[in-house]
């Protein structure tokens, strides 16, 4: 997105909104990771603590999901850039 058409005051407001949203995105990622990795890895409810096997499964799951998110983030940014170019060429 391009905020250069905004007044300086509005750009500052926008920057604060962006900061708030990044915090929300992080918290959502964090909560989502726990939900996904407990869902995929924790099956033994005869005990109260995470077992060794569950522990490594959770670590692999979290690591893999973060790498997936980062990779998709890169591809997504490239696609958005391509589209903005295409939109610019069309004007």
């Amino acid at each position: 997105m391009d905020f250069s058409g905004m007044s300086q005051g509005d750009q500052e407001v926008m920057a604060r909104i962006l900061e708030k949203k990044q915090m929300q995105d992080f918290l959502r990622l964090y909560n989502g990771l726990t939900e996904k990795c407990v869902g995929d890895c924790v099956e033994d409810f005869t005990v109260r603590h995470i077992t060794g096997h569950e522990q490594s499964c959770i670590e692999y799951c979290a690591s893999k999901f973060i790498k997936l998110s980062q990779r998709i983030g890169q591809r997504f940014a490239e696609q958005q850039a391509l589209q903005q170019e295409a939109a610019g060429a069309g004007q």
């Binding site: 949203k21 959502r28 692999y60 979290a62 690591s63 998110s69 990779r71 998709i72």
Partner: peptide
């Protein structure tokens, strides 16, 4: 617009995760 893009991104991640990454984990690398 930002909210819509974030929502799109999250659904994209969820879909491509389901389509491409089996939820059995042997290590932490793609």
């Amino acid at each position: 617009e930002m909210d819509a893009i974030t929502d799109l991104f999250n659904r994209l991640v969820s879909t491509c995760n389901k389509k491409c990454v089996p939820n059995k984990y042997r290590d932490g690398e793609l």
